[in-house]
Computed example of a mutant assay.
Amino acid sequence: MRGYGQYCGLARSLEVVGDRWNLLIVRQLLLGPARYRDLIDGLPGIATNLLADRLRDLEASGVVERRLAGSGSVVEYALTPWGAELREPIESLIRWSAPLMVCGPGDDAFRPEWLALAVPALLGSRVKVRVSVTVGLEIGGSTFQLRASRAGFEIGPHDGRELDATVRAEPACILGLSAGALTLADARGLGLVEIDGDESVVRTVFAA
């Protein structure tokens, strides 16, 4: 991207992350360090040569770094501490996007792990829980666990621990519940969600 020639924080930030795909690459790396093939799989529609170019630019700017994965010789990409500070603006954009997500995915690609960033961002801005609970989310054949506590919300793959309740729903429904745009009662009434276990726990997490 060409420089804007403006002494403005927004302009200079966009010079680093404003190119197409850059923030989506950061999104993937906020989920955890990833190998090149993992990034290709997690970014449907990106060309391999374009991904290589974007990673090179982000690395040159100090947002991304390359390192060896474990004790092997395979290279993985990770955010630098400065790059990881993009979590806050990205979560703000996710919250801002709520009205754009109401219509559902349509023909757009979707990967369940993207909810690992979106759901805590949406819930954390409006819901406070007093006790620690763990809710399973079954979405698109994948099972995640959503941990809620006084410290906030965290989502990841189900690690086998006992769940207080399990929610089965489509991605748009989970996002609507997380954003407070859809109540659990309405979702149940419309047949958009199924719940196993303690429904009161689910109501606590997805408080309207």
Results as ranks from 00 to 15, higher is better:
Ser13Glu: 12
Arg95Gly: 12
Cys103Ala: 14
Thr204His: 02
Ala118Arg: 11
Arg168Gly: 01
Gln6Ala: 10
Ser132Arg: 12
Arg54Gly: 03
Gly197Leu: 02
Arg12Leu: 15
Phe110Arg: 08
Met101Tyr: 12
Asn22Asp: 09
Arg150Met: 08
Val64Arg: 14
Thr143Ile: 03
Arg147Cys: 05
Gly197Ala: 04
Lys128Pro: 01
Leu79Glu: 01
Gln6Cys: 13
Arg35Ala: 13
Arg130Gln: 04
Glu15Lys: 14
Arg35Asn: 07
Ser200His: 11
Val167Asp: 00
Leu122Glu: 09
Leu190Arg: 15
Trp96Asn: 08
Leu122Tyr: 09
Arg27Pro: 01
Val167Ser: 01
Cys173Leu: 02
Ala52Asn: 14
Leu30Trp: 10
Ser149Asp: 05
Ser92Glu: 15
Gln145Val: 04
Phe206Ile: 02
Asn22Met: 09
Ile139Pro: 01
Thr204Met: 10
Ile40Arg: 09
Ala69Gln: 11
Glu138Arg: 07
Glu113Lys: 12
Glu65Cys: 10
Leu31His: 05
Leu122Val: 11
Ile139Glu: 00
Arg2Val: 09
Ala109Pro: 06
Ser142Tyr: 04
Ala78Ser: 11
Leu55Thr: 01
Ala207Phe: 06
Gly42Gln: 11
Arg37Met: 15
Leu58Lys: 14
Arg95Ser: 12
Ser97Val: 13
Val63Leu: 06
Pro105Lys: 15
Ala151Glu: 09
Thr166Gly: 00
Gly136Ile: 00
Ala185Lys: 15
Thr80Arg: 14
Leu31Tyr: 10
Leu146Cys: 03
Ala208Tyr: 13
Arg12Val: 09
Val167Phe: 02
Ala172Ser: 11
Ala69Phe: 15
Arg168His: 00
Pro105Glu: 09
Val16Leu: 12
Leu43Asn: 03
Glu199Gln: 05
Leu86His: 14
Ser61Gln: 14
Arg188Phe: 05
Leu115Thr: 03
Leu50Ser: 14
Gly9Ile: 10
Gly140Gln: 05
Val75Phe: 09
Val133Phe: 06
Phe153Ser: 02
Arg111His: 14
Leu122Asn: 10
Gly189Arg: 15
Arg27Ile: 13
Val205Gly: 00
Ala47Pro: 04
Ser61Ile: 03
Ala34Met: 10
Ala208Gly: 12
Ala47Val: 14
Gly70Asn: 08
Gly180Tyr: 07
Cys173Val: 13
Ala169Gly: 00
Leu190Gly: 07
Tyr77Cys: 07
Gly156Lys: 06
Gly42Val: 04
Asn49Ile: 15
Phe144Gly: 00
Arg150Asp: 08
Gly156Asn: 05
Pro171Ala: 13
Arg2Asn: 03
Ala187Ile: 08
Asp57Lys: 15
Arg150Glu: 07
